[in-house]
């Protein structure tokens, strides 16, 4: 008797795994994110879960990765979702080239695919003959907003440095290009540009050393807020109050720093809503709406203490 119960339970859960999309009427959306160890994606997941509860007319299945570059498990996740027969896959690709082929297979299986956060490589898409819109923020534009705020304050000829994200990561690249555009527009003097791999402690160390080499710098553009915190701490221990810092992401920890002027600005790309908004777009397409095209830009906003 007990055995039968277990068997029944097992059968039910297998059925659930195999695709409850047919069993229930609600469409199933598979959400694939990058590292959940990253605050940004963690918040995004929370936002998506709330969104599922609020809308109540779809079923969310979310997966995250071990780390930022773990694209193999993203490929596996796509394949699993194809097997499960989900109605839509909403994905923040860990690699803009490697993910094109598995997503093409998903589209061929009739699944609505929404690419958000990081855009798939245009060249790779063309090669595979894939037409896919991108839903996401303009990282370069966002970085330029922060860079411009710095440039406006400091004026032409001011010496600045850039603290970059992981070399090779698309968003790191875009943000660096955005900062560099500000440097050009405001005729700033870029004295050094180095990576601190998105991390506070490394940014603290790297920036202290840059400051020793170039004591006359006036501004710092950090590609994320975690690194900006490291820079601010380095400035505090060096006793320098004359150097202006801007960051990116608007994580809660920089709130107090913006408020008391230790940081000039950061950029909010509303990560919490980004997955939820992409799911909305996916559900519209499932409901028979038109396919998305080109770049659906999501909001970004400069955050200052004004």
């Amino acid at each position: 008797m007990k055995f039968m119960k277990i068997a029944a339970a097992a059968a039910t859960s297998i059925a659930l795994l195999a695709g409850s999309a047919q069993a229930e009427d609600k469409p199933v959306v598979g959400l694939i994110m990058k590292s959940l160890a990253n605050e940004f994606f963690q918040n995004m997941l929370e936002g998506a879960k709330e969104h599922e509860k609020k809308r109540g007319d779809y079923e969310l299945r979310a997966v995250g990765m071990q780390n930022e570059t773990d694209f193999e498990s993203q490929i596996n996740a796509v394949e699993n979702f194809i097997t499960q027969g989900v109605d839509a896959i909403v994905i923040a690709p860990a690699d803009s080239r490697a993910m094109v082929r598995p997503l093409k297979r998903a589209m061929e299986a009739g699944i609505v695919v929404i690419n958000f956060d990081v855009s798939l490589d245009a060249e790779a898409k063309k090669q595979q003959g894939v037409e896919l819109a991108f839903v996401g923020p303009d990282n370069r534009g966002g970085a330029k907003l922060a860079g411009d705020a710095l440039g406006e304050l400091l004026g032409a000829g001011s010496k600045v440095v850039i603290i970059e994200g992981n070399p090779g990561a698309d968003n790191a690249n875009e943000r660096r290009l955005g900062f560099e555009a500000s440097v050009e527009d405001y005729k700033l003097d870029l004295v050094d540009s180095r990576t601190a791999h998105w991390e506070t402690e490394e940014a603290n160390t790297v920036f202290s050393n840059i400051l020793t080499a170039h004591p006359d710098i006036q501004g710092v553009m950090a590609a994320n807020d975690s690194m900006a915190i490291g820079v601010v701490k380095a400035l505090e221990s060096a006793g320098r109050k004359d150097i202006t810092v801007v960051g990116f992401d608007n994580i809660p920890a920089v709130g107090p720093m913006i408020k008391d002027g230790r940081m000039l600005a950061t950029v909010d790309q509303f990560g919490q809503d980004m997955a939820a908004n992409s799911i909305d777009l996916a559900l519209d397409v499932i409901a028979g709406g038109p396919q998305l095209e080109g770049w659906v830009k999501t909001p970004i906003e400069l955050v200052t203490n004004k």
Binding site: A37, N38, E199, T200, E201, N204, S226, I229, G230, K233, A253
Partner: peptide
């Protein structure tokens, strides 16, 4: 020491 120096605790520290 990490906490005292940076004034934060990050779960991705020390990789």
């Amino acid at each position: 020491v990490y906490m005292a120096r940076l004034n934060i605790s990050s779960p991705i520290a020390g990789i």
